[in-house]
């Protein structure tokens, strides 16, 4: 087991170093950091609910940065390894295909973590500055616990997407098809809660509507509702954080989903013809 982890960590280290060397990623970091600082300009447009709008802006910029990282870098990692034949060099070592997949996931997850830590610190700094600049009635509360919880939720959402991207990378060859399928997956995840709500309002609980509602519920198990991990509304309200049971269920479901997606990705990659 220890050797397995060592091999996974080695692949992860390669992926991390490769990512840190890419100018595009450095550009993304600079752009995202500038976006966080732009909160200092954004709040000028808000007359009253400055705290809430600023917190929304900071986390939204971070989500956009993570989104760009996932769909324009993470999607390409496995595809590029195959195109440039790097994967053969790696698999020539005593690294199983499953360990390779897990290593790539861990490396990209670590890069995401670094990105989120940097943006989180910048975002907190921007929010503290804004809080000092406005009257207390417009920015009543800034909860550090809620801020960290919101950021953790954001990071886990990104890991969810990353695990799904790894799965699609094993199923499909080429970065562009993986990008399209991943974007479609994300669009379904975003749209499904809205469809469920609309269907529930129109159909009610009658026999006619029951089948469709069940189908939509089953689809939500495959295309999870990311709003369960969205805690940014708590940052400036001063409300108590959700209970451990609710957090446990939401984060637990996400972690299990990530695990299942990765297990499936490893299985698929084991059987895949790399030629």
């Amino acid at each position: 087991m220890g050797h397995k982890i060592t091999r996974i960590a080695a692949v992860a280290r390669l992926v991390t170093l490769d990512g840190l060397r890419r100018h595009a990623l450095l550009g993304l970091v600079i752009l995202a950091a500038a976006g966080q600082v732009a909160a200092l300009l954004f709040f000028d447009f808000i007359p009253r609910d400055i705290g809430r709008a600023s917190a929304d802006f900071v986390l939204s910029m971070a989500w956009l940065a993570g989104f760009i990282f996932l769909f324009f870098h993470a999607v390409q990692v496995i595809a590029l390894d195959e195109e440039k034949k790097v994967v053969y060099s790696l698999l020539a070592r005593p690294v199983s295909r499953g360990e390779y997949v897990l290593g790539v996931f861990a490396g990209l997850a670590f890069l995401l973590l670094l990105l989120n830590l940097l943006l989180g610190a910048l975002g907190l700094g921007a929010l503290l500055m804004i809080k000092q600049m406005v009257q207390p009635v417009y920015f009543t509360h800034l909860g550090l616990g809620a801020y960290l919880l919101a950021w953790l939720g954001l990071y886990v959402m990104e890991l969810l997407l990353l695990a799904v991207i790894m799965l699609f990378s094993g199923l499909v060859r080429g970065s562009f098809p993986v990008l399209l399928i991943s974007l479609s997956y994300y669009a379904i995840c975003s749209g499904l809660p809205v469809v469920r709500q609309a269907a529930a309002q129109r159909l009610g609980a009658g026999d006619e509507g029951g089948g469709l509602l069940l189908l939509l519920q089953a689809m939500t198990a495959l295309f999870p509702d990311y709003q369960h991990l969205d805690f940014k509304h708590l940052i400036t309200t001063g409300q108590a954080l959700p209970g451990f049971s609710l957090l446990g269920v939401n984060f637990g479901a996400a972690v299990l989903y990530i695990g299942l997606a990765l297990a499936l990705a490893c299985l698929i990659y084991q059987r895949r013809d790399l030629q």
Binding site: S60, W63, L64, L154, M157, C189, G191, V194
Partner: peptide
């Protein structure tokens, strides 16, 4: 549906 996490923004 289109905005997802960005709907508040």
């Amino acid at each position: 549906a289109a905005l997802g996490y960005l709907r508040q923004l």
